[in-house]
């Protein structure tokens, strides 16, 4: 209980410091989010999201494995694993096509980082999951359909 109290205090202090900085005009919310590709996450079509996140929407199908359940009972938590044998992969994007904003997440890989990423996403309804990889400047994609019983985006 005591440790939770510490965390709470630390959390409020940290938020407070940032809040003061924002209030003082030192940081505007836009600088806080400077690197976050807002347009890509707000785009409501697959093509717009790809153009914004990866610079192009022309992609060919590549050797990409998407591991996800065929049927997800709870759309709020859908485990997704994207893996590929492609070399020279610099970017991975995971999109749920039927979501209002299809882009769920994008990843920049360092040198020596494998073309592998696993996370859990929210899905509003049954949809294709599209994984797009950028390797040597080209885009490659893989698709898998996930059926959703209960959507996980709204209330």
């Amino acid at each position: 209980m005591n440790s939770k109290r510490r965390v709470f205090l630390k959390g409020t202090l940290a938020a407070g410091t940032v809040g003061v900085a924002v209030g003082a005009g030192l940081l505007t919310p836009s600088t806080v989010l400077a690197d976050w590709p807002k347009a890509a996450f707000q785009a409501n079509s697959l093509s717009d999201a790809l153009k914004s996140a990866l610079g192009s929407d022309s992609h060919s199908s590549g050797d990409i494995t998407i591991r996800a359940p065929d049927i997800a009972e709870n759309g709020a938590v859908v485990p997704i694993t994207v893996e590929s044998s492609l070399t020279g992969v610099t970017d991975i994007a995971i999109l749920a096509v039927a979501n209002n904003a299809p882009l769920t997440s994008s990843y920049k890989l360092g040198e020596g980082t494998r073309a592998f990423v696993a996370t859990r996403i929210k899905m509003g309804e049954t949809s294709d999951i599209v994984a797009v990889l950028k390797a040597n400047g080209q885009l490659y994609s893989g698709t898998k359909e996930v059926k959703v019983t209960i959507g996980g985006c709204g209330g």
């Binding site: 979501n99 769920t104 997440s105 020596g112 996370t119 859990r120």
Partner: peptide, 12 residues
């Protein structure tokens, strides 16, 4: 090693 950009569609 890796930078992830996340939107609100990543689970809680």
């Amino acid at each position: 090693v890796l930078t992830a950009n996340w939107g609100p569609a990543i689970s809680r």
